[in-house]
């Protein structure tokens, strides 16, 4: 898999209780692209992302990562190249210490313990919680848990990073650090978020989902600045694109 293209073709998914969460989603994400997935609550963002790592399988349509279709048989291969940060960090932390939790992934790939330790430390340093290395994860604050969950995925050194609302529960400084860190991550990024300012800063391309369908797919700057469109999708323009509430100056910055 030298080219990490993510291809989603006519993806349909119905939850076992009969709820049609995805209703024919199509897109293609090229190597190195960074794409924001936005949409109102319940639009199907999390459901879509779970298909990319093979947690859910489509009822119809297909997903490919590189040349490889995402099916049961190819999962080990897929999961080596796609790393996913879940919406709820509690789901991702299950060991007794932060160290063991971050080491869980690398150890599964039978890396030597020195290499594991190196990766754990560098992942924790990147997200800025190296001082919590020996704490039990369930005793961390919400934001610290989030950082730890991100570290668990970074330690796997994935080629494609999939994140479900990575910036929720982070304080402004940690959010900044996360944005800076994601900017440095040069591989493919797929980020579902309600933090439109972060999407604006990080992603050159945005896909808007509504009721399980792609409403629009295009350059972030153009889409997020389209007030009518955003309104229609139950969203709001990012603060950075709205007029300044204090001095009334138009648009703080522009892409």
């Amino acid at each position: 898999m030298s080219h990490h293209i993510v291809l989603v073709n006519n993806l349909k998914y119905m939850y076992p209780d009969g709820w049609q969460a995805l209703n024919g989603v199509n897109f293609e994400i090229l190597h190195g692209e960074s794409v924001g997935i936005v949409g109102a609550n319940g639009a199907g963002k999390s459901t879509l992302l779970m298909h990319l790592v093979g947690v859910l399988f489509p009822n119809e349509g297909e997903i490919r990562v590189g040349e490889v279709p995402v099916i049961k048989k190819t999962l080990p291969l897929i999961r080596q190249s796609v790393g996913m940060v879940f919406q709820d960090p509690d789901d991702q932390l299950f060991m007794t210490t932060v160290y063991d939790d971050v080491a869980f992934g690398p150890r599964n790939y039978k890396l030597p313990e020195e290499e594991v330790e190196k990766r754990v430390r560098s992942a924790l340093e990147t997200v800025g919680i190296i001082h919590l290395i020996n704490r039990p994860p369930y005793k961390l604050s919400g934001g610290e848990k989030r950082a730890a969950a991100i570290a668990t995925v970074l330690a796997m050194q994935p080629d494609i990073l999939v994140m479900d609302e990575p910036s929720t529960a982070l304080d402004p400084k940690s959010r900044r650090r996360l944005i800076a860190l994601l900017r440095r991550f040069t591989h493919t990024k797929i980020i579902a978020s309600h933090d439109l300012d972060m999407v604006l800063e990080l992603c050159e391309r945005t896909i808007i989902l509504q009721k399980g369908k792609v409403i629009i797919d295009g350059p972030t700057g153009k889409i997020l600045a389209d007030e009518v469109l955003m309104e229609k999708c139950g969203l709001e323009m990012p603060l950075g694109l709205q007029g300044c509430p204090v001095c009334g100056a138009k648009k703080l910055y522009k892409r």
Binding site: V53, V55, R79, M84, F86, D91, Q92, F94, M156
Partner: peptide
């Protein structure tokens, strides 16, 4: 969900 996230990490 915990199990899935374990699987996602190999």
């Amino acid at each position: 969900r915990v199990y899935h996230s374990m699987c996602c990490r190999g």
